[in-house]
Write a protein that binds this DNA or RNA. Sequence first.
DNA 1: CGACAGTACATGCATACGCATTTAATGTCT
DNA 2: AGACATTAAATGCGTATGCATGTACTGTCG
Lengths: 133, 133
Amino acid sequence: MPAHAKLVAVSDVAEQGLVEEWHELLARYSAVFSTLECRLQERHGIGANEFEALERLATCDFKCRSADLTGAIHLSQSATSRLVARLEKEGLVQRALCDADRRGIFVTITDAGQEKYLAAKQTHREVLNETLR
Amino acid sequence: MPAHAKLVAVSDVAEQGLVEEWHELLARYSAVFSTLECRLQERHGIGANEFEALERLATCDFKCRSADLTGAIHLSQSATSRLVARLEKEGLVQRALCDADRRGIFVTITDAGQEKYLAAKQTHREVLNETLR
DNA sequence: CGACAGTACATGCATACGCATTTAATGTCT
DNA sequence: AGACATTAAATGCGTATGCATGTACTGTCG
C-alpha cells in the first residue's frame, strides 16, 4: 500500500468518526426536542422554544431585550420577534418601550407567564431526565 | 437545614446539570446545522436534510424504501415524502414502484444525484471539521 | 444643525414542517 | 371469496421559520 493511500485511509477514518458524532448529535437532539415539543404542547399549550424564552425571562428577570432572547434561544431575529408576539398574545409576557433607547423593547414575564413557566418546568425536567441518557 | 431541604438541593444540582447538558446539545446542534444548511445551499443548492437523504441513498445503495429514509433522517413521514419529491424534481433521485409490495416505493439515486452527493460531501465534511470541536 | 450610516425590531413573502386525512394496496378472519 | 383492520405513501391545511426589506430611532461626521 502506497504511503498516500494510508494517509487517505487514516483521514477517512477520522472523517467517519466525525460523521458518526454528527449523527449522534442529530439523533439526540431530535429525540429530546420532539419529546419536549410534544409533551409541553399537550400539557401546557406551549412549544419548546416558547419554554426556553419563558425560562430565560423567568430566571434572568431583569429587563431583557428582545435581542438578548435571540441570543439565548437559537432562532433568527425575526423568529424571536414573532415568538415574543405570540407569548404576548397569550398574556405570558409583556412588551414595554425602552426609555434609554427607544428602538429597543423590554420583554418582561407576567404573573401568568411565571405560573406557566413553573408548571411547564416540571414537564421540561421530566423529559430531560427521560431522554438525556 | 432539614434533611428534605438537602435532598431538594442535591436534586436541583443534578437537574441543573441536565439543563446545561441540554443547552450545550442545543447550541452545538444549532451551530452545526445552520452552518451546514448555509454552506450546502450556497455551494450546491441543497439543504442539510437533502444531503442526509442523498448520503443515505448513495452509501446504502440497495433499493431503499421511503420509510427507510424517514428513519434515517429525523423527519416525519410527510416531510420525507415531500423531500423525496423535491429531490426527484431536481433530478437527483428516482421513485420506482416496488413489485413486492405495491404500496411502497423504492427511491434510488441518479447519476446526477451521485455527482451532487460527492461534491457536497466535501463541503459537508469541511463544515463538520470546523464546527464539531 | 442636517445628512447619512448603523441599529432594533416588525413584517411581507416563500418555504419546510407536523398533524390529520386520504388513497391505494396488503393481510387476516370468517 | 368478501368484509375489515392495517400499512405505505401522498396531500390538504395550519403554522413556524429564515431572508429580505421596511420603519423608527440613534449616533456621528461635516
